[in-house]
Amino acid sequence: MEIIQLTHPVQHDEKTIKELEIRRPKVRDHIWLEHQESSALREGKRLADVEKDHKLYARLTDVPEEVIGKLDMQDWGKLRKFYLGCVTPSVSSDQKTETD
């Protein structure tokens, strides 16, 4: 878990949110996201990448999607930086994966 201090706090349910606690993503989170995308497709909708990120960040911070939607782009960038740091392989990793 990491605490992300919001440069621009947001209001939600008469509360000021000044920080978000975010956890590292798990494989199950990506499976869940695939299910969300499949569900949208069945309804004739396509989720844009930013919408998928929006849903995932809400899940990883355990806040309503509405809170994530209110974030300033600078604070969104902090969430994105944390997430990308979790899913980017280290430079020293030379192992091949099944998708390489």
Rank of each mutant, 00 (worst) to 15 (best):
G69M: 05
C86P: 05
R80W: 05
W76L: 14
C86E: 09
T88R: 14
P89G: 07
G85H: 03
D62S: 15
V87T: 13
E65V: 12
T88F: 09
W76V: 15
T61I: 03
G69E: 10
A58R: 02
V91P: 05
P89A: 10
I68E: 11
Q74L: 11
L79V: 07
Y57D: 08
E66M: 04
E65A: 08
D75I: 06
Q74W: 10
P89I: 08
E66Y: 04
E66F: 06
C86S: 14
L84K: 09
A58Q: 00
P64N: 07
T61P: 00
G69A: 07
D62A: 15
R80G: 12
T88H: 05
I68K: 09
V91L: 13
G69F: 04
E65W: 01
C86F: 03
L71P: 10
L60V: 02
G85F: 04
R80S: 15
Y83C: 04
R59E: 08
Y83T: 11
P64V: 04
T88G: 07
D62I: 02
I68R: 07
E65R: 04
W76E: 06
P89T: 04
F82I: 06
D72M: 11
T88A: 11
Y57E: 05
K78L: 14
M73I: 13
L60A: 01
T61C: 15
S90M: 10
P89M: 07
K70N: 12
C86L: 01
P89N: 10
F82V: 03
D75F: 07
Y57R: 07
D75E: 11
G69Q: 07
D62K: 11
Y83K: 09
E65I: 13
E65M: 12
L79N: 02
Y83A: 06
P89L: 04
P64D: 09
T88C: 12
S90F: 01
V91Q: 14
Y57W: 13
V87G: 04
V91A: 15
V63A: 03
R59P: 00
Y83G: 01
R80Q: 14
S90Y: 06
D62Y: 00
T88L: 11
W76A: 15
F82Y: 15
A58S: 15
E66K: 15
G69W: 04
Y57P: 01
W76D: 05
D72E: 13
Q74D: 15
L60P: 00
V67P: 03
R80Y: 11
E66D: 15
V67D: 05
C86D: 00
E65H: 00
K70Y: 08
F82P: 06
E66N: 08
C86Y: 04
K70Q: 12
V63D: 01
I68Q: 00
R80K: 14
R80N: 13
